[in-house]
Design a protein around this nucleic acid. Sequence first.
DNA 1: GCCAACGTTGGC
DNA 2: GCCAACGTTGGC
Length: 151
Amino acid sequence: MNYWLLKSEPTEFSIDDLKRVGEQIWDGVRNYQVRNSFRDVMKVGDKALFYHSSCKEIGVVGEMEVVLPSEVDPTQFDSKSKYFDAASTIDSPRWFGPKVRFVSKFSTRVPLSVIRSDKRFANMILLRTGNRLSAFVITKEEYDALVQFGR
DNA sequence: GCCAACGTTGGC
DNA sequence: GCCAACGTTGGC
């Protein structure tokens, strides 16, 4: 079982959006390293934290579960989408994303500032300078501690 | 809006 | 294969 942190801009897709729809393909990932980690590392039943980025209230806001690790991202074929990729074909799609299920919304957001100031999170990829990954594995200890903060 | 950091692109 | 230019991410 793996534990993940998945980032999304809440103006694009928020924890409330996921709560409303229940399940969703995590689309829009256009980074090869992230794509490969979905394909090669992620497993059915993995747990994932939902992180709000590029917004006023940055931080971890809830929990998800992986329903399917590597689904074809439909936005790559949609010429009207900002995630459209003209080089991708139906026969040989380039981009994938997990299907995730809503588990819970935290009663309190865990702000980035709190994560930064707690030694237990010092090794998270999230805090690494220049990190460009929108999804990555965290440890069970980090996951559990963040859930405890949020509940 | 700024800007540091880093991934991608494309000419050579 | 190198590397400069460019684009994007994402916190502040």
